[in-house]
Design a binder for these strands. Structure first.
Lengths: 340, 340
DNA sequence: CTGTTAGCGCATTCAT
DNA sequence: ATGAATGCGCTAACAG
């Protein structure tokens, strides 16, 4: 591995000249430039980024704190991660994926390590502690999700209140009067996980607004859990004609239960799932979904941090982006059974 | 951010003493030790890892080159990535996820950047060029997957020849005489993607060995593609009673096609999917699967690199691990329809 | 336009 | 058992 001194020596110039040729931060005469470039080429020199990072106090790396809360739960996570990583790469940043049981501590650790310029947080709670810690240290970060108080913080999120309402509006318009919602587990609700709390809020608003009778069913994001919940709810309340689920990962178990109870989808039971477009296509039967722009969220998450890093003074004004999930009818549910 | 000099000054010792207290690489008298530790505590000092990395020539970071070949295709990737990252963290390493359209170049770039101590490669081709490049530079790496020539390289992989054979053996034992295999796309086959080539080999061996008639159907790993392939194949060859698919991501489209042609699973059509246990549970109906130990592969991938990094001399003898996928019958397929 | 020099934060060798 | 000094590879201020 050759270093800048090697190049300097070979080109017969000083170390700093080589550095400036590389960075372009000061004018270099064309002949010198060429000699330096030739030397770089001959030695197959590539700058050591550790040295650069230490000297410039910038690592050109951003990190994503991967969720412990709902970890590994589904393909949505993959979409966030890869699109954030891709976006980072596109902007010339390396992408660190950080996994730790204790997220609060890990956030702080990353912030002071020196290896990371900025952070992306996901699985945000209403009173997320990590955000406080980082803000206090004035460490650049952005959130995929949002808190109750987002002063001075950039974020991108899906509007869950809206998504839940639109799902209910759609079902109400088909004539359904009795709807069940497979929502977040009690545990997620208890820690104030944003999507959990907000979809419940949207659901509550919606049943009043659209005059349907709706029940909320906490449920883990697993096929087994969904199977159990749906099985019990259809047995106890056979008058339910429509299901909304926040757990796309659970749709398998859901449909299994419905079928075993003799309900056909969509003939006897309408289902709306909240998920990403990619994931939606893998279901059988094709479901009506509220599609999350997962890839865009990952991309924006990265861009929001990078934007701060590249704003002089480090005080870019925060951007709040609340995206809307789009209702996609893949296979017509037809009117509610009771209305046929 | 306080530095080691700050600590040294505060404790009234030299810089190197602080360093040695931290590393434990030479004996320190208890009183001095305590003074240093106190100073560290009072200043809330945490070593800057960039400085450490530059001085010690070790970044304590490993990177995973995320596949461009079959990118983002499914949950299997998420399992590899998260379990590798988790394993890295457990061993005290940071985890860099690298995404680049040109993987060969990216591998080399990572190798010389100085930011990364070792690399995990996945989506390995029979003649994978990245492996050659890295081996040539004597840069530590391990593979999830394996090449034709694996001299001196550590890897973990699933035995795809075996998996394909076991799937066929199972179906043959149920009495199926006419089996179709949804295999890798022609493109993957053409580039010599390991799992593609090897599952075809296993399939070919198996039809001879078990005396069944089998047809191979190249197919993209998407629900749409699978739908089209299955639709055509069941139409043209209605005598097919069993399907094996290498594309768990495609099962939705597959089943949709089967149902539209009036085939019920498993009554009229047996299906065996090659996938991870986690993913297997999300299917409806529950399928018989060849389960990949996805999490273990990710974990081992990380451990194999780390093992090399932590072997003195850097020349750990290579480890080759060929894991077996396990047949899991989740819902009995019953005998072949023709035999009922 | 170019060279010299002083760090960045830490590890480590050489002294004592 | 401890301190002083050097260097990892590079950036950037300072000096001409």
């Amino acid at each position: 591995m050759s270093t800048m001194s090697d190049v300097a020596e070979r080109a017969g110039v000083s170390l700093s000249t080589v550095s400036y040729v590389l960075s372009g931060k000061r004018a270099i005469s064309e002949p010198t430039r060429q000699r330096v470039l030739a030397a770089i080429d001959e030695l197959d020199f590539h700058p050591n980024e550790l040295g650069r990072a230490l000297a410039s106090q910038r690592s050109n790396t951003i990190a994503l704190l991967f969720p412990a809360l709902t970890r590994g739960i589904g393909e949505l996570h993959l979409e966030f991660v890869t699109s954030a990583a891709e976006s980072a790469a596109k902007h010339g940043y390396s992408f660190l994926l950080s996994i730790s049981p204790d997220e609060d501590e890990e956030a702080v650790r990353l912030a002071r390590r020196g290896f990371t310029d900025g952070l992306i947080l996901m699985e945000i709670k209403l009173q997320d502690a990590r955000a406080e810690l980082l803000r206090h240290r004035r460490f650049p970060f952005a959130m995929i999700g949002h808190r109750e108080d987002n002063d001075g913080i950039s974020f991108v999120d899906v509007d869950f209140v809206h998504a839940a309402r639109e799902a209910l509006r759609y079902l109400a318009s088909l004539g359904h009067r009795r709807v069940a919602f497979l929502g977040a587990s009690d545990q997620l609700m208890a820690v104030g996980y944003g999507p959990a709390v907000r979809s419940l809020a949207g659901f509550t608003q919606a049943i009043a607004e659209f005059g349907v009778e709706g029940t909320w069913h906490p449920c883990d994001a697993s096929p087994r859990a969904a199977y159990a919940v749906v099985e019990e709810l259809l047995r106890k309340s056979p008058e339910v004609t429509a299901l909304v689920t926040a757990h796309h990962e659970a749709s398998g178990g859901m449909m299994q239960a419905a079928r075993e109870l003799g309900r056909r989808i969509p003939a006897d039971l309408s289902v709306v799932a909240m998920t990403s477009p990619r994931q939606a296509e893998t279901f059988t039967p094709l479901l009506t979904t509220m599609d999350f722009p997962a890839a865009e969220m990952g991309r924006l998450g990265a861009e929001l941090v990078i934007r701060q890093l590249e704003t002089e003074g480090g005080e870019a004004e925060p951007i709040h982006r609340l995206l809307r999930a789009e209702l996609t009818v893949r296979q017509s549910s037809g009117p509610a059974p009771g209305r046929r």
